[in-house]
Nucleic acid binder design. Structure first.
Lengths: 295, 295
DNA sequence: AGATATTTGCAACAAATAAATCATTTAAAT
DNA sequence: ATTTAAATGATTTATTTGTTGCAAATATCT
């Protein structure tokens, strides 16, 4: 929360060596770090009761190239303070001056890690639980995710088939994916996954399901996603990376959490279902080794 | 923590009535409130990918006198968030006070976050880089992942098709998935994804590819995975969770990192390829460009 | 299809900004 | 008390900022 602790400590350490005006400026900076980050230098100077030039001189006195650097450091501190838990993980390799592949990879993984951590915030958790509850009471759960979101949709459906036979994946060869909705009713729920850019097919099918009275719950990327308006529950998850592509890792994580919550709702039933799946698959020699029993 | 909730809600409420550029600007503002408070308008515009003027227009559209007011409100929110412990205390309380579902969800997400962070260790990063390098030089990249690993395999393949035409997904209807390997040569590489329990189909196909002289690289879950022995490069990623299921989130993250590294190897070519994909998809109206206005 | 709004990109502008420069004051040393 | 050095204030300068006006492009409606 403090602006780049090292800088703060440096100001304190060198305070005694400063001239009167410099001390007055430094004191204000220490006591009002947010202002330094948020308002112009001249305004900070006015608030601190010193000349604008004094702020420049303070920055140089601290060994910085200019006042902008002083502001930048305070801004960075404020940024980190704002988005909570997430930032901590990132702190380590912030300024990767070296552009190696390992650095790129590391930076990206840390970013993803931070995004998952961010999903632990109360708002997200509440949405997760509400969505799981809604899915739990559905007669059938239709799952829809096209293009990049196919991966998430399919994985959710796959896990659900291990748990029972309520899940219907809206996908298939020959463009027949939507046919699953033919007998959809108001007792059913459609889980739809879509991130920007939103596939038209996804939106159309979701609208169709809604027209049929089915409940809609969604995993998407923004409050202003077109899915938000038509969904009874929405789980928001970040998709930004510093690479060319959007990430689906948080969306997959969310999907996995949903599966877990659904499984936990009725443990005995879940164990039964997994046992059945186990038997079935081992009869088919699907796996090189039998599915290990998990409690 | 959010910028003056009323303003935020107003942006969301009026979002549908905005033009495309305005929406893009508004979306960035919603998703990066700290940046709005901390950097100049022109910089925000650059980050959001819109013209500077659009930011001014956004502010006026929202009924504000100018952009400065937009920034001021975000700055005020950030000021509160930073030194007001109140928000965070409230979060902690909310979190601690209640329910099992939220706890399990939170715990699971934190676990996943930690697993991704662990992938940043030097050993893993080296494997990632080596694997990316190997994939880079391949004539064709076959991608194989069955059952639960289908999600990861498909997503990798999907991204690779956006980048070029080297990728072949070994999957398809009617059990013809393996046919892609008919003309595989020693210039090719097979990326195989499999976690315990290992699908026999995966191992057989991988062995077949190896017999044909293709290079094998793999994403798997253990040093003692059957894939390790037949692979030139292996990336290990954790799959443990405290729920009934194994997680594929780390595997997906690894796959995404690989895609990024491959994309970074030749940025200009990547940008060209993405542009082509973009053109193609927009001709097909694959994506909803504007969200239908509601009066 | 043509006509009419609306949206969008570009360039120019005035205002404000941080830094550099110079002049004046203040403190310290001889 | 005079000289010298440092500190402070005022002024100037080159950028950068947010805004506005206008033409091209796009969408919308008869």
């Amino acid at each position: 929360m403090q602006p780049s602790d090292s800088l703060r400590e440096q100001i304190i350490a060198q305070y005694d060596a400063m001239s009167a005006q410099l001390q007055q400026a430094a004191r204000y900076v220490l006591e009002h770090p947010e202002e330094v980050a948020l308002v112009s230098m001249r305004e900070v100077a006015r608030l601190a009761g010193v000349q604008p030039a004094t702020m420049t001189r303070l920055a140089k006195f601290l060994g910085l190239p200019g006042y902008d650097e002083l502001r930048a450091q305070h801004a960075a501190a404020l940024r980190q303070g704002s988005d909570g838990f997430a930032a901590k993980v990132r702190q380590r390799v912030d300024e990767g001056s070296e552009r190696g592949a390992c650095d790129t990879a590391s930076h990206m993984l840390q970013g993803l890690s931070a995004q998952l951590a961010k999903l632990c915030e109360p708002d997200s958790l509440r949405q997760l639980e509400a969505t799981a509850t809604r899915l739990r009471s559905a007669r059938k759960v239709y799952v829809l995710g096209l293009r990049s979101c196919h991966a998430v949709a399919w994985h959710f459906h796959y896990v659900m088939t291990l748990l029972g036979e309520r899940s219907v994946h809206l996908d298939g060869p020959g463009g027949t994916g939507g046919d699953g909705l033919i007998r959809a009713t108001s007792e059913d729920v459609l889980l739809v996954i879509s991130i920007k850019p939103y596939a038209t097919g996804t939106l159309e099918l979701a609208q169709l399901a809604k027209d049929k009275g089915a409940g809609i719950v969604s995993i998407t990327d923004s409050e202003v996603s077109p899915l938000v308006g038509m969904s009874a529950q929405t789980i928001l998850c970040p998709t930004e990376t510093d690479s060319f592509f959007h990430t689906l890792t948080p969306a997959l994580a969310v999907s996995e959490v949903l599966c877990s919550l659904l499984a936990e709702f009725d443990r005995p039933k879940t164990l039964d279902a997994l046992q059945q799946a186990d038997d079935h698959l081992s009869h088919l020699n699907t796996y090189a080794t039998a599915i290990p029993r998990r409690q």
